[in-house]
Amino acid sequence: MQNSKIILTEELVKRFPVGGGYFTALNKINLSFGKGEFAGLVGPSGSGKTTLLNIIGSLDYPSEGKAIVMDQSIGDLTHRQAARLRNKYLGFIFQTYNLLPVYTVYENVEFPLLLLDTTTTERHRAVLDAVEWVGLTDKLKSRPGQLSGGESQRVAIARAMVKKPEVVLADEPTANLDAANSHHILQTMEKLNRELQTTFIFATHDEKVIQYLRRKISLEDGTVVNDENLGNEK
């Protein structure tokens, strides 16, 4: 299963205009990810992890080269097609949780499904399942402001997983959490990866995350300096 490549980057370059010139955030990145991977982009701040994650997530476009996700070239997508790709195949987990503040836990988790053509019954079942995966069944009616950091991130995981996406992109998911909560979150994600065969790609420099990874891609100054299989058993 891991051999079927669902993400592929070829000579991927990303430049940002700075002053009169350009800053190269990613420089000729060649990577591929298969289904069910539990991989991490590791490196110091400014190494290009988040930029790469954003391009894979079709939130940004390559300056040169190719990024192909689910057989769709990110650089060629219209806004609408990119939105469709994110909606159908990708889940996001952010460092700051990014829960919708006026929605309840149920409504936050339900949100991605509202954008898909699902029936109310399907939605209801999927939301309850997702909330159960992360152990927050008793918080369905709570609003984000009433949750702890760990609980908020678990809601974010449920929201990312509720539509059973092919890929979950997690940008520093444990950065705002204590050690216990970080491990809890990572164990949850590892379990979901195992059970649902969802590909997880992290952008992180947190050692706690790294110890759960099965593949570690080290970035420095926008280039891949190391891509190693850590051999963590699935």
Partner: peptide, 16 residues
């Protein structure tokens, strides 16, 4: 704007 960015990340189009 963070909320809007999140909604876009979750698959909302500009039109939506």
């Amino acid at each position: 704007q963070r909320e809007i960015g999140t909604q876009i990340a979750l698959g909302m189009t500009r039109g939506q």
